[in-house]
Design a protein around this nucleic acid. Structure first.
Lengths: 331, 331
DNA sequence: TATACTTATTAAACTAGTTTAATAAGTGTG
DNA sequence: CACACTTATTAAACTAGTTTAATAAGTATA
């Protein structure tokens, strides 16, 4: 691709990103935010307006002179289908480009059936709603590129490329649920673009962690990062399990303390996040006190409790939004 | 900065990077590698030749038609001063832009004196060799931006900004020695741009690790990453020390095994590297066997032994080279 | 309500990378 | 050694973002 084509694509993506996040902006504001000249911004915005992707709205309140026209992304130009694959059922949401719910429903669980059934589901939903321009899927398994490289218990999905199987006309992104959650946490809490966060979740599919370092997901060279159950913290070298977190006794606190200390000593993140249902403020407080007996308190991460469901959903939406921003203009 | 200025800077930096790495290239090869058109590449190369930064060399062997002229970076246009601050002495090297040694020498140790003494040293060297266009310093302490945020034993250097103190006309980069080493390892072994490597060193200044994830240094939010001595692997929660590595007994092997397992479970790097003098092939083999009893062998990192000194030097050179590539053209 | 002032938009001249055509400089072959 | 063929370089036309000037559309005030 030539340099000038890249420039063009970057400008269009920049406009989409700004308008999806801010909802209303003037041409001058967009030009300023993207560090491009007004005439160039104007040209592309007009193009997007002609295409129906951007809406030309009313005038802004005056700032002392001629009032500027404001523009917004057309929320119905691109819808997103967000799919949460789970053991018992499949939750899915269709949103517009502002993340507003168009439809929310539940389908049967797909994980124990052939992936082609899931592909059929996508085709049905796309037929019902032709505005859908992207699909984002969260899955309790490791994802390498487009391939599900490891998924315990659901052998039919192992080593499958859902994108290839589905053979869709729209973009499709698939991501591990914990990775999505840590991205969602970053966004929901307004953390910087270079944040480092470890998100610990003792979910039904076994304990694990989503890890963000320098603002990027850490997947590991064999997609095995965050498998904290394999950290040899127990005296007898057995793996950590959910039950180690449940109890509010000395042993549980000691174990979680060691986990916090290990993570802090190795990657020193700014935040370690725990699932609402799995840790109380008091439990974390005790653990933090415990860690500080061995670990310099200056370098302690902030320990937070968060709503995993909301973080997961936000994360999947962020992935879908990224796809919408990167939409190919010829489709 | 306007978009077109950025384009210009990127092209010039791209040409520098290519010529510093490849030593001889034709205009067509440069244009191809940078994804720019031939005329544009030609224009900038001419500009650099006129400035004396690039040398116009002879013709390449024919490929069946008119022979292309080849170009090379002028190795003497920019020299680099690499400084290794250590407890007992200060090693320093002056190289040309091809990393070829111009001068190698040792100065007294600066760490126990006021940093202004080091600043004087820089001024002297710059006066002796006006071709020096950048200085890169390695230091056994944590560096946050330009500030030495934590350095044990050398209180005069704590919280100092060497760049600001020195007040030089050339660029100056300062980096932690272990971080430099892991960068050097990545380069020396031709690892990908997105490599994940943990480099373990039980150095004189205490044990620690340089960590590279997705090709980026992991510094931690308080510059405390890689402080593996704080990982609670010993039964009695005391920190790991150098002596834990020295012995080839059961206990040492068990400890290093746990360390490998911890790192693998958490960040799953492709490589864990150990210092030559601190681990034998046999020791690592035993440790690896030990880890595989508890940890899936598919996800084991490759365990390597490397020459820390060479890695450190290469890493510091890479940092210096980056500065040369990013040189401001008005200086 | 005319006039000065402020801000937004459009138009025209300018700058810089790309494309295409023309020219230069070589190789190989009948 | 003329001719076809290949590759490199230069020149000219083209395309696209920036800058600057001109115009439009408003506000404030005497």
């Amino acid at each position: 691709m030539t340099m000038q084509e890249q420039v063009k694509i970057n400008i269009i993506r920049g406009i989409r990103r700004l308008l999806m996040d801010h909802h209303r902006m003037s041409k001058a504001e967009i030009a300023e935010a993207l560090s491009i000249s007004f005439p160039t911004a104007s040209k592309f915005i007009e193009e997007l307006v002609n295409r129906g992707e951007v809406l030309s709205l009313g005038l802004t309140p005056s700032a002392g002179g001629r009032r500027a026209r404001s523009y917004a992304y057309n929320p119905d130009f691109a819808h997103a289908l967000l799919v949460y694959l789970e053991k018992k059922e499949t939750k899915y949401v269709i949103t517009n480009a502002y993340k507003e719910k168009i439809l929310e429903d539940t389908a049967k669980s797909f994980l124990e059936h052939d992936p082609s059934i899931l592909a059929e589901f996508f085709k049905t939903k796309l037929a019902e709603n032709p505005s859908i321009k992207t699909i984002a899927i969260g899955i309790p398994g490791a994802v390498n590129g487009d391939v599900i490289s490891y998924i315990p218990d659901y052998s039919l999905y192992a080593n499958q490329n859902i994108k290839a199987i589905s053979n869709l006309t729209v973009d499709l992104t698939i991501e591990n649920d914990m990775n999505a959650a840590v991205l969602g946490y970053q966004k929901r809490n307004g953390l910087s673009h270079e944040a480092s966060v470890v998100y610990i979740y003792m979910g039904a599919n076994g304990p694990g962690a989503g890890i963000l370092i320098n603002g990027e997901l850490v997947k590991g060279h064999t997609m095995f990062s965050g498998e904290i159950s394999f950290i040899p913290l127990n005296d007898d070298s057995r793996v950590i399990t959910k039950s180690d977190f449940d109890k509010d006794d000395e042993k549980s606190i000691s174990l979680v303390s060691k986990l916090i200390q290990t993570i802090s000593a190795l990657i020193n993140p700014s935040h370690i996040v725990f699932h609402q249902a799995e840790a109380s403020e008091e439990f974390l407080h005790k653990a933090a006190e415990n860690v500080k007996r061995y670990f310099p308190s200056d370098h302690m991460p902030a320990l937070y409790i968060s709503d995993w469901d909301k973080d997961y959903k936000e994360g999947l939406w962020q992935l879908a939004k990224l796809n919408l921003i990167c939409l190919d203009m010829n489709s």
